[in-house]
């Protein structure tokens, strides 16, 4: 197992270096002079320009500049925002809980609905239930989620007036963040209605972000389940006279879940891409919106740092999924 762990960690190193090269190149590939972009000042004098050039190290050989940048990354120095002058890492971690909370709710929503739906479709294979579940899943999979979010706002916020349109909690409530997770913080604050407000703000974004993972999980569960239902041990369990729910819920599901767990883990990339859109629609103050805003504000050091942080995050989660899979399924480890 240790060897397996080691082999998986080793391959991440070149990938991380590649990610850092892309981020490093990004600022230098932008149209215009990187110094003017970073300085954000107009009408620079020549002395000031040279000063900035030296300050940012642009006067040194490109390889030295890169190694310096990489060393910075490894020691947690992701530069500072051009706009706010705060450290990029600090900004990232102040917004990350919002994205984590939303993504967590979305994936739980997707799994709680997707796994039973996929099971039902597999058990009732070929029936009208199967067809409608799979049809719905395909619609979900094809959904432009930025439009889906707007539709839900029209219906639930506009017509019915049930849910708020944007943000994480109503302005009526204010309390200092403890964990950064609004659901926990609002419950801890002890203010009446705060928790309910947080929940009502979370519902629509959760549905929107969870839609595509839900469709993927339902499809994956169905096909994994169909495969398992054809196995000998399932037939044996049936032949023993076990009730169908026991065969399906216990014998089959346990094995069918292995690929499904992997699928859930691999949705992180999908969730991050979805967070960019979902957070933009609902003004959710997470890292997706942070990245989009930074692109528009031309806060390029933030974009640069965010790229590395998000890619690293996805790499680590994928590594975790890989290890978990190796743990559940020993056959994988041998390769």
């Amino acid at each position: 197992m240790l060897r397996f762990l080691f082999s998986r960690v080793i391959v991440l190193i070149p990938t991380f270096i590649g990610v850092s090269i892309i981020a490093f190149a990004f600022i230098r590939l932008l149209p215009g002079d990187p110094i003017l972009l970073i300085a954000g000042e107009r009408g620079l004098t020549e002395e000031r320009y040279a000063e900035l050039q030296a300050a940012y190290g642009f006067d040194r050989p490109i390889v030295v500049q890169y190694l310096d940048y990489l060393a910075g990354l490894l020691t947690g120095d992701f530069g500072e925002s051009i706009v706010t002058k705060r450290a990029v890492l600090e900004e990232f971690f102040s917004r990350f809980p919002a994205t984590l909370e939303l993504s967590f709710c979305a994936i739980v929503f997707a799994a709680l609905l997707g796994i039973p739906a996929g099971m039902l479709a597999a058990v009732k294979r070929g029936s009208i239930i199967d067809q409608s579940i799979m049809g719905t899943a395909l619609v979900g999979f094809s959904m432009p989620i930025f439009w889906w979010g707007l539709l839900l706002i029209i219906l639930f916020s506009g017509v019915l007036g049930w849910t708020p349109v944007s943000g994480r909690i109503s302005f009526l409530y204010f309390f200092p963040p403890v964990t950064g997770f609004m659901l926990i913080d609002s419950a801890l604050s002890g203010q009446e209605g705060a928790f309910r407000s947080a929940v009502s703000h979370l519902i629509l974004p959760t549905i929107v972000l969870g839609t595509i993972p839900l469709a993927v999980i339902a499809r994956q569960t169905r096909s994994a389940m169909l495969e398992v239902l054809g196995e000998d041990y399932v037939r044996t369990a049936r032949a023993k006279g076990l009730p169908p729910w026991r065969v399906i819920g216990l014998h089959a599901l346990r094995n069918a879940l292995i690929p499904v767990v992997t699928t859930i883990g691999l949705q992180v990339g999908v969730l991050m891409a979805g967070a960019i859109l979902t957070e933009s629609i609902f003004s959710w103050p997470g890292i997706g919106k942070w990245m989009v805003d930074s692109v528009f504000r031309r806060d390029y050091t933030v974009v640069q740092g965010g790229l590395v942080l998000i890619a690293t995050l996805i790499m680590l989660v994928n590594l975790g999924v890989d290890l978990l899979y190796g743990l559940i399924n020993p056959r994988i480890r041998r390769n």
Partner: peptide, 12 residues
């Protein structure tokens, strides 16, 4: 190189 490209969410 392909791993590096796939490390990012495609939309980002």
């Amino acid at each position: 190189v392909m791993d590096v490209i796939l490390a990012f969410p495609s939309l980002l």
